[in-house]
Design a protein around this nucleic acid. Structure first.
Lengths: 215, 215
DNA sequence: GTCAACATTATTGTATGCAAAAATATATAA
DNA sequence: TTATATATTTTTGCATACAATAATGTTGAC
């Protein structure tokens, strides 16, 4: 385990940022945070550096660290990038996944469907993440898989929203089936294409939501 | 400009790591570095955090920070990921690049060819980077472009090596032509495919080199 | 000579102090 | 009153001090 307080603080801050505790552009006051966490400024500063390097905050020299919630444009860009990363994983996974990998993917897919039948959104959500993570690993490229995992993590909070769309979960399951069969057949192009679409549509749903809110 | 010493130190350390100044697994001694840079441990520690978050070093709590030169396997993975990122950029750029963008791309390509005629490897090298960066920007997705730029930066030192292969530069220029025409024609799939191949072959050349050294 | 237990040293992680820069408040002139 | 100059306060960035843990060395039993 990680007994460094700075890292624990970084994790906590990350959670707080994700949960929208901070406004966009808000300055993260070192002294206040130090008081809140009952530590000195030093571990706080380290934690802030972590946020900055992950892109969740921006540092302006001699000014401070400001949290940067991604706006609609950047979010769309991130979803688009996620779609391309997943497509890349799918392309490689189609060639490289073992039968065992495919079996556990089918398994994860079943658990997704079960969660929908139970109308258990939370479970669907985590099982869906598992489904995708199996594909990342199936690409047999640790570096690429880590990139995908990182972005998946950053988009988690936003992906949740689009599940509320009517019929989205059923449609999503259809897409999963297509993805699963493409991977099973070893069809790299098809796997890439279906995965790209599957993820890209999440960005579009998100876009719709934003647009509807701004009306 | 950036007047924070810690960041300057991070940049310098980055250069030193790239230039192979440090052995793989070597511990970065905070006190030694503090003496070398004539600063206290504090800015050194900040700089080390930067290296860690960029993946160039690993931090083990209560032990220290150890530099991590990527081995052959990880390098291949990175090249493969780069190939997929560039393919993604190409796919989007084919649809989104303006005529002006295309003109500057053709221009960069010409300068690459000129550099080859002049047998100026260094110039070819930088002009080639420009060529690719224009495509990143052409994707009109800042987030994706930044991902690509980051990885391009990390692979810089290793990409250089493969240029030594006989005929590689000419072949590379042929590939550039194909890429340019695919983008000009707005053929997304072709752009993605040619770019993927163009970058992936660099990884393969690198692999050949490694293999030949280990004989 | 080898191994284990203990003492010593080195190194990391955190707290605190201080200087420089930025932000803010105050005073003064127009 | 507004604008500008100056003083005051905040806040960052770095230096130093200290505590806790890990690494190393030493001693003694076998």
């Amino acid at each position: 385990m990680d007994i460094r307080r700075a890292n624990q603080i970084a994790n906590t801050l990350e959670q707080l940022v994700f949960s929208g505790e901070f406004q966009d552009g808000e300055r993260l006051d070192e002294l206040k945070l130090a008081e809140q966490f009952h530590v000195s400024r030093t571990p706080i500063r380290e934690a802030l550096q972590v946020l900055v390097s992950s892109g969740m905050a921006e540092q302006i020299p001699r000014r401070g660290v400001f949290i940067r919630q991604p706006g609609p444009v950047e979010l769309m860009e991130m979803f688009e990038t996620m779609a391309e990363l997943e497509a890349a994983c799918g392309r490689l996974a189609a060639i490289r996944m073992s039968d065992k990998d495919l079996a556990s993917l089918a398994n994860a897919n079943d658990r997704c469907q079960q969660a929908i039948r139970d109308t258990n959104h939370d479970r669907y959500y985590t099982e869906n993440e598992t489904f995708h993570q199996i594909i990342y690993r199936g690409a047999a490229n640790t570096f690429l898989a880590n990139q995908a995992l990182q972005l998946q993590n950053r988009l988690r909070a936003y992906r949740r929203i689009q599940l509320r769309f009517r019929g989205r979960m059923d449609q999503s399951m259809n897409e999963h089936s297509q993805i699963l069969s493409a991977l099973t057949n070893g069809d790299a192009d098809m796997a890439a294409q279906t995965l790209r679409g599957h993820v890209a549509i999440q960005g579009e749903k998100f876009h719709q939501l934003i647009a509807s809110l701004n009306r």
